[in-house]
């Protein structure tokens, strides 16, 4: 029983050490990344598909 407790404590300590050593992302970096990701073509596809008339898919790539 005592060995299980010791193992749990050791694992918990190891996890804490790993988490503490992992470089944290700056809030500015995370915010900027989120901003840029939200402007990606994949993120915009939903709105474009919702508004674009069905027959204009063939023209995709010619202009935009």
């Amino acid at each position: 029983m005592i060995w299980i407790l010791v193992a749990v404590v050791v694992i918990a300590l190891a996890v804490l050490v790993i988490v503490a050593r992992k470089p944290r992302q700056e809030p500015g970096v995370a915010s900027f990344r989120r901003h840029i990701d939200a402007l990606s073509p994949e993120a915009r596809r939903e709105v474009m598909d919702r508004v674009r008339p069905p027959d204009s898919n063939q023209q995709e790539g010619q202009g935009n």
Binding site: H35, D37, A43, V47, R52, E60, G63
Partner: peptide, 27 residues
């Protein structure tokens, strides 16, 4: 080049901002 939907482009862009409000509120 002419945009595919020149009359709707502005509202589509704003619509995208409302869909991703939290990520794009800095704009």
């Amino acid at each position: 080049k002419m945009s595919n939907m020149p009359l709707e482009a502005v509202v589509m862009g704003a619509g995208h901002c409302i869909e991703h409000y939290d990520a794009l509120k800095t704009m």
